[in-house]
Design a protein around this nucleic acid. Structure first.
Length: 293
DNA sequence: CTAGGATCCTGTCAGC
DNA sequence: TGCTGACAGGATCCTA
């Protein structure tokens, strides 16, 4: 999915387009994608656009909040209805051609109608969802309640302790666990570990405090760089020359770079499987200490 | 309690 | 060309 930087990019992009605006209509074309009652959302005004980990939170003026989780392939796409496009279009989330397709299309699950345009919740695999809950209950919602701290609020001590608690799990699995730290997914787990020079399959319990420090530092730096570079949006998906690609090239050193040279040492980046996920690393910069001391 | 694997769903791509 | 299996930027549920 869209990981923390992608969701933050959506939050920033959508905020000026939908905050303080009234939702005139809601069309649900896939029941699985919308949890709750449409009546609790229709005719409500969006008061705030927040984010926690990978979850986007839209607070409404009727004491309800929409929790949106994009999971693997979710997207939020705003199409302005003003003819001269005074209000700009925006698209963020999983980058694919829906960013620029005619909408709705086969992957459109929910449509929110505003006076100024339409917001499409698209999701190829239907893992993502929009969930309506009472604003006061957001903090008690099990997923939200269980989240670890945002990476930049996390203390090295706490991450180190959690590595000890999950001593026999590969460090990558620990980073992907949202209860440990919020917002890291497959891209940023790989990139953080590359930054720190730690092998993804290294057992978490074997890591020194310095290594944990580096990993957390890497997570914060890479995520910030992703946000600063514009994240995964329509603007980064469509290149100036009109061709399509994605924004990974703007910051990724290992993710989807298997077969290419490591920028640090020239070794060929490898792809393998760790924690059940495709995993990219430099076999020279990221040595596994492993062992059994 | 932790760790690991299957599972939800659709689409794409490599290999035969 | 058509089929098949693997895999995908996530999280949960089940089992050991």
């Amino acid at each position: 999915m869209p990981e923390l930087p992608e969701v933050e990019t959506i939050r920033r992009g959508l905020k000026p387009l939908i905050e303080k605006r009234k939702i005139n209509d809601v069309i649900v074309s896939c029941d699985k994608s919308f949890r709750g009652k449409v009546e609790d959302v229709r005719n409500a005004r969006i008061e705030a656009v927040r984010r926690r980990g990978k979850a986007l939170l839209l607070d409404l003026d009727n004491d309800n909040t929409m929790l949106i989780h994009l999971r693997m392939t979710g997207q939020l796409i705003f199409r302005s209805s003003s003819p001269e496009k005074k209000i700009k279009d925006f698209a963020g989330g999983h980058p694919n051609k829906s960013f620029v397709d005619e909408l709705p299309n086969a992957q459109t699950r929910v449509i929110f109608g505003f006076e100024t345009g339409k917001l499409f919740f698209n999701d190829q695999r239907k893992f993502g969802f929009v969930q309506v809950l009472k604003t006061g209950e957001v903090e008690n919602e099990p997923f939200i309640a269980g989240l670890g701290p945002e990476p930049w609020h996390m203390k090295v001590e706490e991450l180190h302790e959690k590595c000890q608690r999950h001593a026999k799990a590969p460090i990558k699995a620990v980073l992907l666990d949202q209860k440990v730290v919020a917002g890291i997914g497959n891209i940023y787990a790989d990139e953080s570990l590359y930054y720190a020079g730690v092998h993804p399959a290294e057992l978490a319990g074997k890591l020194s405090r310095d290594q944990v420090t580096k990993i957390l530092e890497g997570a914060c730096l890479v995520m910030q760089k992703s946000i600063d570079s514009g994240g995964s949006t329509m603007a980064t998906y469509v290149r100036p020359d009109g061709s399509t690609g994605d924004y990974l090239e703007l910051f990724a050193k290992v993710f989807r770079r298997e077969g290419k040279k490591c920028e640090r040492c020239g070794e060929i980046i490898q792809k393998t499987r760790v924690a059940g996920r495709g995993t990219h690393y430099c076999p020279k910069c990221q040595i596994i200490r492993g062992g059994n001391d």
